[in-house]
Amino acid sequence: MRWYVSIGAVLVAGMLAGGGVPGVAAPGPQAEPNERVVDKESTPSVDIELIIAVDVSYSMDMDELAVQREGYAQAIVSKEFLQALKAGPNGKISITYFEWAASNDQKIIIPWRVIDGPESADAVSAEIMKTPVRRASRTSISGAIYFAVPLFDENPHRGLRRVIDISGDGANNNGAPITPARDMALEKGIVINGLPIMVKEPSYSTMDIENLDWYYEDCVIGGPGSFVVSIKDREKFKEAIRTKLLLEVAGRTPERPVVRASDKEPRVNCMIGEKIWQDRWGR
């Protein structure tokens, strides 16, 4: 089951009001024994193994890249985030943060790190902010997923849930098609959530598409409880990032989902990015 939500539909205070957020058992199929390294077979020590994968393609302007970076850094140290963190069964999460663009362009900014309170959250936030902002060519969401999945086996901390959190402002236009990459991750019990960035009007020069939120909903996200938080207002960029992280850490879906997903044909061609690139540049 997947939920789709716009930032205006989520009430974070309500989600956390009235005491702690109950722990949530790992959704989706259980991983086979050979899918995890031996030292992770013990009882889960963290509530979630969270991979944050952020788009740094040229379609993102420098202001968007800076606000995106600041949004994640500030969300991790926010009072709401730390409250959700402590409400979990283990009271801590394991997180890694990387930037992506083309199919062969991924850069880890934060290797696997445990956040268990204000001090560790501050350290991760500071490390995110001190890394210079960069931009790169092409957009390969599939490449980001294929890069992210093996990282779970490198994490020494086993979690109740495994989640890939993808933010981006365009459709896949480089590397492998998106749906096989998504399906591969889902088969391993990994949940993919999305943060489509839609603060600019679609532009020929940036390969933007209309209804990017539909594209993320139908072609990118997946797994039990997966959801999209779309950003359509630049002023709410940081709020949207904080909302998505809170939902992920708390193991919750939005309280007021806009649409309940059902099995249906995608509303957007999942190869639209590749088609636009081919039509314009013939390669």
Rank of each mutant, 00 (worst) to 15 (best):
G91D: 08
S103R: 08
I128S: 00
F98E: 05
A101E: 04
P118M: 06
E127F: 08
A123Y: 08
P89H: 04
I108W: 11
D116C: 05
D122Y: 09
F98L: 07
R134E: 13
A123T: 12
I108M: 12
A102M: 07
I115R: 00
P118N: 07
N90Q: 14
S125F: 07
D105L: 07
V114G: 04
K92A: 07
W100E: 02
E99C: 02
A136S: 14
G117V: 08
E127M: 12
S137L: 13
R135Q: 13
A101R: 01
Q106F: 05
P89M: 07
K107F: 11
A121R: 00
I110D: 07
E119H: 10
I109W: 03
D105H: 12
E127P: 02
K107V: 10
K107H: 14
E99S: 05
P111T: 10
A121T: 04
S137C: 13
A123G: 04
S94I: 05
I109S: 00
S137H: 15
E127A: 15
M129W: 07
I115T: 02
I93N: 01
I110N: 05
P111A: 10
A126L: 15
V133L: 14
R135E: 12
P118T: 10
V124N: 01
G91S: 08
K130R: 13
M129A: 10
D105N: 13
T131G: 04
S94R: 01
Y97H: 14
I93H: 01
A102G: 15
T131H: 14
K107P: 00
A102Q: 10
P132T: 01
V124R: 00
S125M: 08
Q106I: 05
R134H: 11
E119N: 13
E99Q: 14
V124E: 06
I108H: 10
G91T: 06
P132E: 09
V133T: 14
A126M: 13
T131A: 15
I109H: 01
A102C: 08
Q106A: 08
Q106K: 09
K92S: 09
D116R: 06
N90E: 12
Q106S: 11
A102E: 11
D105S: 14
Y97F: 13
F98P: 02
N104S: 15
S94N: 07
K130M: 12
K107C: 06
T131I: 05
P132I: 01
V124G: 02
P132Y: 04
S137A: 14
E99T: 02
I110G: 01
R134K: 13
I128W: 02
D116W: 01
M129R: 13
D122P: 01
W112I: 06
K130D: 11
D116L: 02
P118E: 15
T96W: 04
A136V: 04
R135I: 05
D116P: 02
P89K: 08
S137G: 15
Y97R: 03
S103G: 06
D116M: 06
E119K: 11
A136Y: 10
P132D: 09
V114D: 06
G117R: 06
P111E: 12
S120H: 06
Y97D: 04
F98W: 08
Q106Y: 07
P111S: 11
A136Q: 10
D105E: 15
W112H: 06
I110T: 03
V114N: 05
A101W: 02
R135K: 14
